[in-house]
Design a protein around this nucleic acid. Structure first.
Lengths: 201, 201
DNA sequence: TCATTTTGTTACCAGTCAGTATTTTATACC
DNA sequence: GGTATAAAATACTGACTGGTAACAAAATGA
């Protein structure tokens, strides 16, 4: 993705690494909340001047959008992999429970859910990307549940779509509770309870 | 609570009604989000000058605290009444489901949950009150579940405390979804599903 | 009439925000 | 050397934030 074989061009050589700045921003957004981290603070943390950031990302929306793209590549892909590679419903749900309630990456919550919760504060590009990812996740959850339904184990009177929304929101709730410092063991207990509705005999 | 028999005192008579200003602020906070409503905007909406507001409430923290107190009196009391007056577990859960998924007062969400979600942005007084109310709610939920447990219908292997947290968070999730424009019928479906774990035979 | 008290009004404070114009610096090309 | 080019650094803009000082207005009490 990055040209790390920089054939020399005219002009002052660049000292700022956009990927590094993006990662600094992601870390700050992720640890606290995107709404609580200013461009000024990111520049200070990254040791760069503001115009350099604006040259690389164009606007705050451009930065948050780049951060979200990278976050999707590096973190959300794990969830999509679980959904696509799980062996059966119970196995998939167990993997999701493990990830949400125990994975150290979710210790300070999920940056995507934080962005989604404050969606109205985001710029248009980032907001559109949030909605796109949300739709992808809903589809992935629905695919898993449709598979279970086809296999014959499905609670009566529940639509796959509603089940997918329910599943996604329960995961979001569990991870958001991680961010607020709730005891992981209790989070696991509650998430297991919430998802038991899919597998009661 | 208010002295509406104002025996004349010295000084210029007051034209500002603090209760009205508080209600204007509550409405604005409730419709959108406390973090998105500035003191300046409230003054403009209420048609008063900033020093008048500060004379009445002392600080932004004082105002949000007064708003939360009033909200607890006028709205949260409904939930506590449901919890205290419900006839049996299923009846109580049904009433909670009705309130969360259909009551028009929750159409733009719950101000308390909005404050709790942005707790770190609140002043110390308001934050303390949020935590106090949260503890009261947890206790009220636990009392209902303890009653059901004493009556003999209780799912195996679940502590009352964890059940109470689960119940509270499911209500919060449902109401937060109301604020984000989710279809009330689907919210009801999902909340019913989530709370069915308490009453499966 | 005149001082006292309490309110409302105006204009301001310092700080922060996202974003940018301007200048300085470091390189490549000739 | 000199020139073109692109990046970095500094300093700024205008808007907004919570909060307040200074003053004007409206009442009471003497």
């Amino acid at each position: 993705m990055n040209d790390d074989n920089p054939k020399p061009v005219r002009g002052r050589p660049r000292t700022m690494n956009a990927d590094t700045v993006r990662d600094v921003a992601m870390d700050a957004y992720w640890r606290t909340d995107p709404a609580d981290v200013s461009i000024n603070a990111i520049c200070q943390m990254a040791g760069i001047a503001k115009p350099s950031l604006y040259r690389a990302f164009g606007s705050e929306d451009g930065l948050t959008r780049a951060v979200l793209d990278s976050y999707a590549d590096r973190v959300l892909s794990v969830v999509f992999a679980i959904l696509q590679n799980g062996e059966g419903l119970q196995d998939t749900l167990d993997a999701l429970i493990d990830f949400a309630s125990a994975d150290p990456r979710m210790e300070t919550g999920c940056l995507f859910y934080k962005m989604r919760a404050g969606k109205h504060r985001l710029g248009p590009e980032t907001r559109a990307r949030v909605e796109e990812i949300d739709a992808m996740a809903q589809a992935a959850y629905a695919a898993v549940l449709q598979g279970a339904r086809d296999a014959g184990n499905w609670p009566g009177g529940l639509s796959v779509e509603a089940g997918a929304t329910y599943l996604g929101e329960q995961i979001a709730l569990a991870i958001t509770q991680r961010a607020s410092g709730e005891d992981p063991a209790r989070i696991r207990e509650m998430l297991t309870l919430a998802l038991s509705v899919f597998t009661r005999q």
